[in-house]
């Protein structure tokens, strides 16, 4: 077994600052962020537009590097890792759900889900079986051979969720996953993710300013101008 402290905390952000340079003008998107996300958390980073939610999520997801500060995933510092190692961490530990779904347009729903499993080297028949099971679980079993452009936003986002969890990640990062969905569809999607959180113990970190999402958070970080102004548990 791992060290207890590390085992219970999956994300640790220490003094993270991020400064963009927009045509030479420095933009401080994150100004000293400290936070810890524990395993099985269903946490939401809320905040107005431009507050730095996406930036923070990208940095946690190793897609971007902080200008200052440290990120620990499962107790491991990620700054020292190279591109290949980071890709591997994302593949094995992290699932991403994007606001714009971002499914591959050339693959059908099942293939989109299989794709991440293929990257992990899971054999074709097992991929297919797992993909179909996941789709059944998420209530999109009948969509297997539909391409993204043949599906509604809600359906695409469910496929995206299935893709995100297909490799049994420890952590799912979802950047405004409901922003493009109507509230009924959004509610169903959130039900689904809550269920996955309960049943499979997957840790979720959302960014959102959607009250529906915030309502369900076990843990709520409120971001403003690149700083956390509120950190509440079990809201």
């Amino acid at each position: 077994m791992e060290n207890k402290h590390i085992a219970s905390e999956i994300v640790r952000v220490e003094n993270v600052r991020k400064t963009y340079h927009d045509n030479g003008v420095p933009v401080d998107a994150l100004r000293g962020i400290n936070l810890v996300v524990s395993q099985k958390d269903f946490s939401v980073i809320a905040g107005p537009s431009g507050s730095g939610k996406t930036t923070l999520l990208n940095i946690i997801g190793t897609l971007d590097k902080p200008t200052e500060g440290k990120i620990f995933l499962d107790g491991e510092e990620v700054a020292s890792k190279n591109r290949r190692e980071l890709a591997d961490i994302r593949l094995k530990k992290i699932g991403f759900v994007f606001q714009a779904y971002n499914l591959s347009p050339v693959l059908n729903a099942l293939e989109n889900i299989e794709f991440t499993m293929m990257l992990r080297g899971i054999p074709a028949d097992e991929r297919k079986r797992r993909g179909l099971t996941l789709m059944e679980q998420l209530g999109i079993g009948e969509l297997a051979d539909k391409r993204p452009n043949e599906m509604s936003g809600g359906q695409q986002q469910r496929v995206a969720v299935a893709r995100a969890i297909s490799n049994d990640p420890r952590l799912v990062l979802a950047d405004e996953p409901t922003a493009n969905l109507d509230s009924a569809t959004a509610a169903k999607l959130l039900d689904l993710m809550e269920q996955l959180n309960h049943e499979s113990g997957i840790t979720f970190v959302f960014s959102s300013h959607d009250p529906q999402v915030i309502e369900r958070a076990h843990r709520l970080f409120i971001l403003k101008d690149g700083q956390i102004i509120s950190d509440k548990k079990n809201v």
Binding site: G61, R84, D88, R90, I94, L119
Partner: peptide, 16 residues
């Protein structure tokens, strides 16, 4: 470009 970005995010290696 956008698709490659997504591919990289979900863990596709440069080599692939």
């Amino acid at each position: 470009t956008h698709e490659f970005g997504v591919d990289m995010a979900i863990g596709m290696s440069n080599k692939r």
